[in-house]
Simulated scan of single mutants.
Amino acid sequence: MAVALALFSALAYGVSDFVGGLISRRASAWAVAVLANLSSTVCVAVIAAFVPGEPTATDFAWAALAGLGSGAGTGFLYRGFSSGRMSVVAPVSAVGAALVPVVAGGLGGERLSLLVWLGIVAALPGIWLVASVPEDDLSRVGGGTTSTGRAGLAEGLVDGVLAGLGFGVLFAALGQIPDSAGLWPLTLSQAVSVPVVIGLAVVLRAAWVPRGRPVRWALLAGPISAVATGSFLLATQQGFLTIAGVLASLYPASTVLLAALILHERVHRAQGLGLVLCAAAVVLVAVG
């Protein structure tokens, strides 16, 4: 059951990210993240009111940390989607999202197996290859010139790494919350993510106030994200954090598929090999 919940979480995250990323190309990525996280908070709060639980102060502390990771992950992921290719940013973010819970477990006393280390080694060239785009595509990535394309690709890669670290923190922190806590800690996590997004936008001098019709569609991404996060929390409560974290990190699969089918983004040979390595890394970490 834990595996099924984690995989469903990955599917829901991928769909939510695609919706949010698509809107981020027509509106401020930070405004999209604010509205999506707000709607997600409301959805979780409504459900939490009907779910019994006795959360402790420690549970809320972990939830607050998860909110920091969620806010940073969502903001940088959407910004990366707005400036780079979904098929680049999403897989790169997934590697960090998968590895951070593993590292957290190692620091907590868990010993990493040889397979896990092999997965980490496979992830490094995987990121490099996924981020590679042929010369004739660089102009399309950045919007006009080769130099602009390279800049847009680099920004997207950095955003993918930062988003992965944020989601990794989210996964690792949520994994510390027991099922006896109910869903109010998850509500706090979603609520904390909103001021985190706003704070990052202010520091980066980016627009974060939702304006215009396109950004309103971000309200759809919130409920889907809430379902994804809730499913992941249940998965960690019924199974191992490492396994749930890695399986949930498969979310780029649906994002890349939707990007290819709807946006007609091409996956080139080098990127394909990178995706295979990233997938291998995820599998090795899960098996290990």
Rank of each mutant, 00 (worst) to 15 (best):
G53A: 09
G67C: 04
G106W: 13
A63S: 10
A72P: 00
V95I: 13
L107R: 09
I47E: 09
S82V: 04
R85C: 00
V103L: 15
A57C: 01
W62Q: 05
L112K: 09
L77Q: 09
G67D: 07
V88C: 06
S93G: 12
V51G: 06
R85P: 00
V100A: 10
V88T: 10
A72K: 02
T74H: 02
L65V: 15
S83G: 12
V103H: 03
L65K: 03
V103E: 04
V42P: 01
S93C: 06
L77C: 06
V46S: 10
A104Q: 08
A64H: 00
L77E: 02
T41F: 12
A72D: 02
G67I: 02
W62D: 04
G73A: 10
S93D: 03
I47C: 06
G69Q: 07
G84N: 00
L77W: 02
L112N: 11
W62E: 04
L65T: 09
V103Y: 08
G106D: 10
L68M: 13
A66S: 15
A97D: 01
G69F: 06
A90D: 08
A97C: 07
S93E: 05
F50P: 00
L65H: 00
A45W: 12
F50H: 13
T56S: 15
S70L: 14
P52G: 11
A90S: 15
D59I: 08
L77A: 13
G67N: 05
L65S: 03
V92N: 08
F81Q: 05
T56Y: 05
S82C: 07
A64T: 10
F81Y: 14
